[in-house]
Design a binder for these strands. Sequence first.
DNA 1: ATCATTTCATTGCAAATGAAATGAAGTCAA
DNA 2: TTGACTTCATTTCATTTGCAATGAAATGAT
Lengths: 173, 173
Amino acid sequence: MDEPLDLDGFLPYRLAVLAARTSRMLAAAYQARFDISIHEWRIIAHLAQASPVTVRDLAARTDLDRPAVSRAVDRLRLRGLVEKAPVSTDRRLVAIALTGEGQALYGRIVPLARAFEARLGDADAQAALMAGLDALDTELDAMEAAARAAGDRNADQSDGDGSSANQPQSGQP
Amino acid sequence: MDEPLDLDGFLPYRLAVLAARTSRMLAAAYQARFDISIHEWRIIAHLAQASPVTVRDLAARTDLDRPAVSRAVDRLRLRGLVEKAPVSTDRRLVAIALTGEGQALYGRIVPLARAFEARLGDADAQAALMAGLDALDTELDAMEAAARAAGDRNADQSDGDGSSANQPQSGQP
DNA sequence: ATCATTTCATTGCAAATGAAATGAAGTCAA
DNA sequence: TTGACTTCATTTCATTTGCAATGAAATGAT
């Protein structure tokens, strides 16, 4: 090895740090006022968009693992923000939806989220960044597909549940 | 509120999900083989670049909070990968450096990291994404500076330690 | 129909994390 | 010099998370 990695020029690192920072700053807009964690907000936002949703689908859509979703949903349920119902066609499934109270809370947070996003740069800059992220998404999909096609043992092991969780996500662009 | 937020078009969300996914897939390249967590890798990578470093500076550079750094460093120390030494000029400080073993491990992971990055898109695409991320970084800095200048009570509270941790980071471009 | 396998949501366990607290050391003002 | 205040790394405490396990339900093969 000739030179240490230059972290500031290393894309995965740069992406991770800025994403964490962005999340933290957005969360600052709603956490103290509404006592909602990042995971909980993400779940609420998805439920507001498509409802009811199963744990499995919610996990895929939010890029969270299923225990995390299950627990976050239970926390939200304790606060009357979401409700769960069995699915008659498949008794394994649980249908999760926002309550009226959850909808109201969502409506109060959305303006904060929009205002925050508006400060991240003008429309052109944001469009450019989104295009870059879309391209990255495509590359990651390709990498995962290649790993599956190769039947590579290491990749199979490390992708494990992640691969199956991502599959429906890729199917819903 | 007229319409629910379109999460796929919401930049902070898109960024968070792709960053998490990227990190997870990169981590898959080294976690099973070397039993190194994402935080630990980040710390090792920084120590390989600049050493010795204090917990404070390491926390700032890795965008982690100080307890997390302190603990990760202790885990790495238990494995003989890093060492700690007091700083004679300021007894509060602890100087952290990679051991020979830590350097060797770093050297084995770097090719994996580089190979992973190379698969994230061609040089032009990556450069465009990095440019977008740099612009975002600038916006986030500006937002934090504005919050501090306004002396806004809410922003001060939620930024708290984060602001002071980010300060040296901004000063080392 | 039976049985093997897969899928689902939840739970258990151990480890990690975040916020607050702590005690030591340093800086600054009077 | 003393005392107030700040900074540092670590620890405590409560909570969350990740992985594995679990039991129920569904699917597929025979």
